[in-house]
Nucleic acid binder design. Sequence first.
DNA 1: AGACAAAGTTTGAACGATCAAATTTCGTGT
DNA 2: ACACGAAATTTGATCGTTCAAACTTTGTCT
Lengths: 333, 333
Amino acid sequence: MTKPPTVEDVARLADVSRQTVSNVLNAPDVVKAATRERVQRAISELGYRPHTAARALRTRRSSTIGIHLDPYAGGVSGVVLDRFVHALTERAGERGMRVLLYAARTPEEELERMRELVERGEIDAIVLTGTFHGDPRAHWLLARDVPFVAFGRPWGEDDVDAPAHLWVDVDGAAGVRAATRHARRSVEDRVAFLGWPSGSGTGDDRERGWREEMHAPGLRLVAEEDVAQARAVVAAALADGEAVDAIVCASDTLAIGARLAATAAGREDLEVIGFDNTPAAEALGLSSVEQLPEQVAEGVLGLLMGETGSSVVARPATAGSAHVLVEPRLVLR
Amino acid sequence: MTKPPTVEDVARLADVSRQTVSNVLNAPDVVKAATRERVQRAISELGYRPHTAARALRTRRSSTIGIHLDPYAGGVSGVVLDRFVHALTERAGERGMRVLLYAARTPEEELERMRELVERGEIDAIVLTGTFHGDPRAHWLLARDVPFVAFGRPWGEDDVDAPAHLWVDVDGAAGVRAATRHARRSVEDRVAFLGWPSGSGTGDDRERGWREEMHAPGLRLVAEEDVAQARAVVAAALADGEAVDAIVCASDTLAIGARLAATAAGREDLEVIGFDNTPAAEALGLSSVEQLPEQVAEGVLGLLMGETGSSVVARPATAGSAHVLVEPRLVLR
DNA sequence: AGACAAAGTTTGAACGATCAAATTTCGTGT
DNA sequence: ACACGAAATTTGATCGTTCAAACTTTGTCT
């Protein structure tokens, strides 16, 4: 195997200087058309590709985005994140960016990994998932002027609207609103909501969608993210003779529990709608609200690189444009 | 924000030369203990970290492993791959390696991405998933002398044993054998197998486990990877009055179908065991054979870097040690 | 034709690390 | 004390690219 060609080789073949070759690649418009074509030909003839490390060293840009992989939690909804990572990789590739993974078991360790990646010049920007009120990661990144975008709102009173803290999220309320609206078409107001205990931003957001869509307050059930518990809660409600024709749930896990309880109680007719549209919901034929991680990825890159840019730009901080809400889609089965 | 320190800064502070600093990092044993400590102190005082791109440029090693992310197929078993990627990232990090993702929609595109990553010096090695008989990716990598390991056997007659084609896989036959053995404990030989149509290496391997464990040939059912179809097949078998007390399945998807059919037929007692232990199986309380992607990741890195090495080594090609079979684990619910 | 600005191209240096070879320091035996 | 080889350290070059500035060519206006 022979040594790969360098700019120098291309330059020699095209009878121009190094820099002209570089310009053809990075600023084609400053090179005269005839020269440009000659260089292009030399490039493809030799199969030349710029060496990434050399470029990164000189420009001090790695063209790489870092993203943390959460420890595998078990649970049903890891899929959303996985689809997001995939979509991000695809879209980033189209824009000349690479996606680098890092793993960490604890927040402290994650901070340490982030620090390492930044200080070694391995990444130009970072994508955070699951940010929360007063998240130290966001603070650290802001202080260091490291570009970042979060997938998920931080949910803190101040943070959510802070234009420096860029985020993209799925509009849970809108999704649940759509699910509730659909369910109410046939059964009037007998649509219940099965959610998590109050206090989680995501859960409260989804519940709000149900409240807003209902005209009169309806039955609200609560369970932790656990099939058995959801099943028990719903079974109890049905046994109590609650008048319910549909249950909109905060997650597919809850929805599966609800479906099992309904079936066991002979209520095959009870409509159950989940959230996240996981493979499990699909397998059981449950309707569900589907997040669109592909659009989230698009939004993340938009915030990071501008609409069409091919490199990470300094934080825009334009008040209105720092946050993106993606509307999810109701999948009926 | 001030410029990050370089070897030069550390050297000045510790009153040694660049190279000595470099040696402390890369060959500590050649440096006198006293000097080493002085340099260490300077390093932590300045918070110095080697710049990855500079190192990669000089050494011509990127310390990065590339892995392809399959297009999200839907379906139930993406999880295995996701857990694998996660585990790989974690383990690789411990060995000073990074994991870079790449996306491609078609095999041709994947080849092109691989070529690009290699020629730009972005990766030292590559992890392939889903290799098959005569896989052009493997051929290309072999020809280029790019180190790689496959997750999954190539299943070709020649390929599987070729010592140059390193692979790690899960022993499907052993997993199904364990599941069958467990089921037979109580019900003698009335254990059926629900698998895919013959011809897929993975499917045939799993079925083999069942055959081997059964003393007499038993009932073998076939369906595509689809809940509804699996359900129909099992429902038909039950309606025919087949004597079956347990069904071992080639996948969780099939198992879910089987479970639904059994329940609908009033056969709550029928034991159904799946394969992959996906969240869906967990949610439904189905037993399943769990692949251990963490061990696969360990095996992959072992083949790539040796048992304890911290960099990719030339392909060993030691006849016996080029392949690793990981024994899966039966999870009972 | 000559002057001058704009367009196009080249040159030298630099990014931060490690390699290879040269040099200095150390330890030991006589 | 001295020589000698081993151990420890330093020096100069280099990896492949792009930046910044210098230089050359082209085009336009008078």
